[in-house]
């Protein structure tokens, strides 16, 4: 008997999370869940555009993504599940939209890569993310990311804005409750970029976080800023093991 307990005790840390973590998908209406599962999900447009852009030569190097990386189905599999990652040349953490922009400026020699909110940037991001469909979120174990991840954890529980609220006060302490008619989610970033019916378009995690910061009337961290990437690093480690959703629909 004792031996059995010890055995379970050793096994548990390696076992996949069997916990009460919930995604926004779990709390959506069955109609919206059906829309997400439908192959004619509106997010498909961005994936199709991204697929075209992947093999289109660009920049003064006239290189396509495909020319270096090969087919995205193999080379990009699991990438979105792992990001943010560490970029050695700039010795900083970068998120996936940031990495795509770096690749465009360094290798395709595009003088000014498009803004991450540009439809083409979103299309490439959606296409790359789509290659991680159904894989578990596996945060990058690179120890150089640890300081940024710690900053993210700190930011998550720091009060900010005129309403003087931290992320944790809503998303850890009051998840499942309501802010007006909107259910407060646990803030697991399982599905980004996502098609929000409120936006009527695809948007990145930055955009979603910006929405929250506007809500508490705080100064917003710029998209792709070190603070945003740190927050994403922390949120991804908090959501480790959860499934990457593509193409996510949210109200």
């Amino acid at each position: 008997m004792i031996r059995t307990f010890v055995f379970i005790g050793i096994l548990l840390p390696g076992v996949a999370w069997s916990d009460d973590r919930r995604t926004g998908y779990d709390d959506m209406s069955p109609d919206l869940q059906a829309l997400q599962e439908d192959p004619m999900n509106p997010g498909t447009f961005w994936v199709l555009d991204g697929e075209r852009l992947w093999s289109e030569p660009a920049g003064s190097a006239a290189q396509s993504c495909d020319a270096c990386h090969g087919p995205a189905e193999t080379s990009m599999q699991g990438v979105a599940a792992r990001y943010p990652s560490f970029d050695a040349p700039s010795s900083s953490a970068v998120d996936l939209p940031g990495r795509i922009a770096l690749c465009q400026s360094r290798h395709q020699k595009i003088a000014a890569p498009k803004d991450r909110a540009d439809p083409d940037s979103l299309a490439l991001l959606a296409y790359v993310t789509h290659q991680s469909r159904g894989l578990p979120i596996t945060p990058d174990a690179d120890p150089r990311l640890a300081p940024a991840r710690a900053v993210g954890a700190e930011l998550f529980s720091s009060r900010m804005g005129q309403l003087n609220l931290s992320c944790a006060q809503c998303h850890d302490d009051n998840d499942g409750g309501y802010l007006a008619a909107a259910r407060i989610p646990q803030a697991h970033p399982t599905g980004y970029p996502q098609y929000r019916l409120e936006w009527e378009t695809l948007g990145t995690l930055d955009r979603r976080l910006t929405g929250c910061m506007t809500g508490v009337r705080a100064d917003r961290f710029p998209p792709g800023s070190p603070e945003m990437v740190s927050l994403e690093l922390f949120l991804k480690s908090r959501a480790a093991g959860m499934t990457v959703e593509t193409l996510p629909i949210r109200p």
């Binding site: 004619m40 509106p42 447009f45 019916l197 009527e200 378009t201």
Partner: peptide
Amino acid sequence: PAITANPF
């Protein structure tokens, strides 16, 4: 006009 973007 009240119909969503990307109508289905």
